[in-house]
Every structure is written in structure tokens, then in C-alpha cells.
């Protein structure tokens, strides 16, 4: 049984060996991707902060700041990197039970910036 969540985040960017390229699932290596954590009414704030501290090695201050962003804004970008790095983080987050998705970083190289990060968060403030 593989407890893949025991693996810490891989911070060594650019050490791609090519052995995993055969999955056919990887984007061009230099397009940045974001790991997004979404708010949900079940996960404990303390637990989310614990996961950010223990898995990413973030300080308590940084972990709490990101956790509060998830809680108040509905989502937060908690890590970025190559597509395969953020995908690995996403699986680890799913292992912990956090609701995580990956998305192409807006404004990154590749031209297609998609929707801007801030959209959809201000609930009906207009008008």
C-alpha cells in the first residue's frame, strides 16, 4: 500500500529526468500551474492550517494566512510550479481530504490566460 502523502513537496524544479514523460499527461514544462484549495464547510480551519504546515513546510503565519484566504474568499492559490508538481500536490491534498484543483496560472507564458484569479469572488457587490 502506497502512502504517497508521506512524500514531501518536490521543490527541485528543473530536475525533470524524462522518465515520467511517457504518461502523456504533462504540459510544456515551463508553463506555470497553480494549486488551488477551495473552501468547504466541513474541513476544520485548524486541520487545513496543519496540512499546510506539515506538508508544504509553511510557517504557522503563512499557513494561517492561506487558510483564512480559503475561508473568507472561497479559494486560495497555495502553491505553484510545473503541471506535474501541482498535480502531485493535488493528489496529496485529496489524500488529506482537502478540496484541491490545479489550473494554469493566468498571465503566464503561453498566451491563454484564461479567467483572471480574482473573478467570481465578490458576491453580488455590483449595482
Amino acid at each position: 500500500m502506497t502512502l504517497s502523502v508521506a512524500l514531501g513537496p518536490d521543490t527541485q524544479e528543473g530536475t525533470r529526468t524524462g522518465t515520467e514523460e511517457s504518461t502523456g499527461f504533462l504540459a510544456a514544462p515551463d508553463i506555470p500551474w497553480n494549486l488551488v484549495i477551495w473552501n468547504d464547510p466541513v474541513n476544520l480551519m485548524s486541520y487545513v492550517s496543519y496540512v499546510f504546515q506539515s506538508y508544504f513546510g509553511y510557517s504557522e503565519t503563512k499557513a494561517n494566512k492561506l487558510m483564512m484566504e480559503v475561508h473568507k474568499k472561497g479559494r486560495s492559490i497555495v502553491a505553484n510550479g510545473s503541471k506535474e508538481q501541482v498535480e502531485r500536490h493535488a493528489v496529496a491534498m485529496h489524500g488529506f481530504g482537502l478540496w484541491a484543483t490545479v489550473e494554469k496560472a493566468s498571465g503566464g507564458p503561453g498566451g491563454n490566460s484564461g479567467k483572471s484569479g480574482g473573478s467570481g469572488q465578490g458576491k453580488g457587490k455590483r449595482g
Binding site: T2, F25, V36, V91, A100, T101, V102, E103
Partner: peptide, 29 residues
């Protein structure tokens, strides 16, 4: 959960590669 918010096909492809081991991780815990 799906790994991409608005891309069912890419999420499904990701499931094929990762879901079994995610299930095993959770069952292990």
C-alpha cells in the same frame, strides 16, 4: 474530487492514473 474545476475530460484522464492509489492511501489511513 476532480482535479480540474471545469475540465471533465482532463480530470478523468488524471483519475485513470491516480485514483486507485488515492483510494489505497485513504484506506491505509
Amino acid at each position: 474530487p476532480n482535479v480540474m474545476k471545469n475540465d471533465g475530460a482532463a480530470s478523468l484522464e488524471f483519475r485513470q492514473l491516480t485514483e486507485r492509489s488515492l483510494r489505497e492511501t485513504k484506506i491505509g489511513a
